[in-house]
Lab assay of single mutants.
Amino acid sequence: TTITITINGEELRIRGDHEEIHKILKAWEEDHNDEEIVRLIRELAER
């Protein structure tokens, strides 16, 4: 699965399995701050 998210003008492409993507979207849905979401995404992007 690949998704693209733009946060603060920075486009981040994430490839991951369903569970990893779900974790990010769940954090977003629960209204975590952008920095935390960006950190989760970067961790995935670095793999």
Rank of each mutant, 00 (worst) to 15 (best):
T1V: 15
T2C: 08
T2H: 11
T2W: 15
T2V: 13
T2N: 06
T2L: 09
T2K: 04
T2Q: 11
T2Y: 13
T2E: 14
I3W: 12
I3N: 01
I3R: 03
I3T: 05
I3P: 01
I3F: 09
T4A: 08
T4H: 08
T4F: 12
T4V: 14
T4R: 08
T4I: 14
T4P: 01
T4Y: 12
T4M: 09
T4E: 04
I5D: 00
I5T: 01
I5C: 02
I5P: 00
I5S: 00
I5V: 11
I5L: 10
I5R: 00
T6D: 05
T6H: 11
T6V: 13
T6L: 11
T6W: 14
T6R: 11
T6F: 14
T6N: 10
T6C: 13
T6Y: 14
T6M: 11
T6S: 09
I7Y: 04
I7E: 00
I7F: 09
I7T: 01
I7W: 05
I7R: 01
I7K: 01
I7P: 00
N8Y: 05
N8T: 03
N8Q: 11
N8E: 10
N8P: 01
N8V: 03
N8M: 11
N8L: 08
N8A: 11
G9A: 03
G9T: 02
G9M: 03
G9L: 02
G9D: 04
G9P: 00
G9H: 03
G9F: 04
G9W: 04
G9E: 04
E10F: 04
E10V: 09
E10D: 07
E10H: 07
E10Q: 11
E10N: 07
E10P: 00
E10K: 09
E11I: 14
E11T: 13
E11C: 05
E11W: 06
E11L: 12
E11V: 13
E11R: 09
E11D: 08
E11G: 04
E11N: 07
L12V: 05
L12W: 14
L12Q: 02
L12G: 00
L12A: 01
L12P: 00
L12E: 01
L12H: 08
L12R: 02
R13Q: 14
R13V: 15
R13C: 04
R13G: 04
R13T: 12
R13S: 14
R13W: 15
R13E: 12
R13H: 14
R13F: 14
R13M: 15
I14A: 02
I14N: 00
I14S: 01
I14T: 01
I14E: 00
I14W: 03
I14K: 00
I14V: 07
I14F: 07
R15F: 14
R15G: 06
R15Q: 13
R15W: 13
R15D: 08
R15M: 12
R15T: 14
R15I: 15
R15N: 11
R15H: 14
R15L: 14
R15P: 08
R15V: 14
G16L: 12
G16Y: 06
G16N: 04
G16K: 03
G16Q: 04
G16C: 06
G16R: 02
G16A: 09
G16W: 08
D17T: 14
D17E: 12
D17Q: 09
D17G: 07
D17L: 06
D17H: 12
D17V: 07
D17C: 04
D17P: 08
D17N: 11
D17S: 15
H18Y: 15
H18K: 11
H18I: 15
H18W: 15
H18V: 15
H18F: 14
H18N: 10
H18D: 12
E19S: 09
E19K: 08
E19L: 13
E19C: 04
E19Q: 10
E19P: 05
E19M: 09
E19T: 11
E20N: 03
E20F: 09
E20S: 06
E20D: 08
E20Q: 03
E20T: 07
E20P: 02
E20I: 04
E20H: 05
E20C: 04
E20V: 06
E20M: 06
E20K: 04
E20L: 06
I21S: 01
I21M: 06
I21F: 05
I21A: 03
I21D: 01
I21Q: 01
H22M: 14
H22C: 07
H22F: 13
H22V: 13
H22W: 14
H22D: 13
H22E: 13
H22Q: 10
H22N: 12
K23P: 04
K23C: 03
K23R: 15
K23M: 13
K23I: 11
K23H: 10
K23A: 15
K23T: 11
K23V: 07
K23Q: 12
K23N: 12
K23L: 09
I24N: 01
I24A: 03
I24M: 07
I24Q: 02
I24D: 00
I24V: 05
I24L: 14
I24W: 05
L25W: 08
L25N: 01
L25M: 10
L25T: 03
L25V: 08
L25S: 02
L25P: 00
L25D: 00
L25K: 06
K26R: 11
K26S: 10
K26I: 11
K26E: 08
K26F: 08
K26H: 09
K26G: 06
K26T: 10
K26C: 05
A27H: 07
A27D: 05
A27M: 14
A27Y: 07
A27I: 11
A27Q: 12
A27L: 14
A27F: 08
A27K: 13
A27T: 07
A27N: 04
W28A: 02
W28D: 00
W28P: 00
W28S: 01
W28L: 09
W28G: 01
W28C: 02
W28M: 08
W28R: 02
W28Y: 13
E29N: 13
E29L: 10
E29K: 12
E29M: 12
E30Q: 12
E30L: 13
E30C: 04
E30P: 12
E30N: 12
E30I: 10
E30T: 12
D31I: 07
D31F: 09
D31Q: 10
D31C: 08
D31W: 07
D31S: 08
D31M: 13
D31T: 06
H32D: 10
H32W: 11
H32S: 14
H32L: 10
H32V: 13
H32P: 15
H32G: 09
H32T: 13
H32Y: 12
H32Q: 14
H32E: 15
H32C: 11
N33A: 10
N33K: 06
N33R: 08
N33Q: 09
N33Y: 15
N33I: 14
N33E: 11
N33P: 05
D34H: 08
D34Q: 07
D34E: 10
D34A: 11
D34Y: 14
D34P: 12
D34M: 11
D34K: 11
E35W: 06
E35C: 08
E35L: 12
E35I: 10
E35Q: 13
E35T: 10
E35G: 06
E35V: 12
E35F: 07
E35D: 08
E36I: 05
E36C: 02
E36H: 10
E36P: 01
E36R: 08
E36W: 07
E36A: 11
E36T: 09
I37W: 06
I37G: 01
I37Q: 01
I37D: 00
I37P: 00
I37K: 01
I37H: 02
I37L: 15
I37F: 11
I37V: 12
I37Y: 06
I37M: 12
V38N: 04
V38H: 08
V38Y: 07
V38Q: 12
V38T: 06
V38A: 04
V38F: 04
V38K: 13
V38L: 15
V38P: 02
V38C: 05
V38W: 07
R39Y: 03
R39K: 13
R39Q: 10
R39M: 07
R39D: 06
R39I: 06
R39F: 05
R39E: 09
R39C: 02
L40R: 08
L40S: 03
L40K: 09
L40Q: 10
L40M: 09
L40D: 01
L40Y: 06
L40F: 05
L40E: 02
L40T: 04
L40A: 08
L40H: 04
L40G: 01
I41Y: 02
I41S: 00
I41P: 00
I41L: 14
I41H: 01
I41C: 02
I41D: 00
I41V: 05
I41E: 00
R42L: 15
R42N: 09
R42P: 00
R42Q: 14
R42M: 13
R42W: 13
R42D: 04
R42Y: 15
R42F: 06
R42I: 14
R42H: 05
R42C: 13
R42T: 08
R42E: 11
E43G: 02
E43Y: 06
E43V: 05
E43I: 07
E43M: 05
E43C: 09
E43D: 07
E43A: 03
E43Q: 04
L44W: 13
L44N: 02
L44I: 05
L44V: 03
L44C: 03
L44E: 03
L44A: 04
L44G: 00
L44K: 01
L44Y: 08
L44H: 03
L44R: 01
L44M: 13
L44P: 00
A45W: 05
A45P: 01
A45E: 12
A45H: 04
A45D: 08
A45G: 03
A45Q: 05
A45Y: 03
A45S: 04
A45M: 05
E46M: 03
E46F: 04
E46K: 03
E46T: 03
E46R: 04
E46L: 06
E46G: 02
E46V: 04
E46P: 00
E46D: 15
R47F: 15
R47K: 15
R47N: 15
R47E: 15
R47T: 15
R47D: 15
R47P: 15
